[in-house]
């Protein structure tokens, strides 16, 4: 086989190979996204159930402690630090028919 035709074949192999690898890796990465979405949905359901018993217990303590606890919880769930959050107002929500 001449050098040129070998190179051309090599280039087509490269293109095919790159495409196949890219497709497979993309599919794997989308599959991982599906995990993430599914695990987020699972987290939301048990969290809503937890809010009902927890809220009444905290109301009895000091207000500033309460603010600190809520801010820390929000910061943790957002993956940032409390320094980066400014709390403007906290209102107790009324949960209807969860």
């Amino acid at each position: 086989m001449s050098r040129l035709s070998l190179l051309v074949e090599g280039l087509s192999v490269t293109v095919i190979g790159v495409l196949i690898v890219a497709v497979i890796l993309l599919v794997i990465s989308f599959m991982i996204d599906v995990f993430r979405v599914m695990s987020q949905k699972k987290e939301q359901k048990p969290e809503q159930k937890l809010e009902v018993p927890v809220a009444p217990a905290i109301v009895e303590t000091d207000d500033s402690e309460l603010v600190a606890v809520i801010t820390a919880a929000i910061a943790a769930s957002l993956g940032t630090h409390t320094d980066r959050l400014v709390v403007r107002s906290i209102k107790k929500a009324v949960l209807r028919g969860v």
Binding site: G10, T14, G17, V18, A22, L25, I28, S29, D33, R36
Partner: peptide, 20 residues
């Protein structure tokens, strides 16, 4: 960080460079 899998794939292009 699923997008990092693409970075793993990009580096494999070096394989094809040496192949050619």
């Amino acid at each position: 960080n699923p997008r990092s899998i693409l970075l793993g794939g990009a580096a494999q292009m070096g394989i094809f460079a040496a192949f050619l």
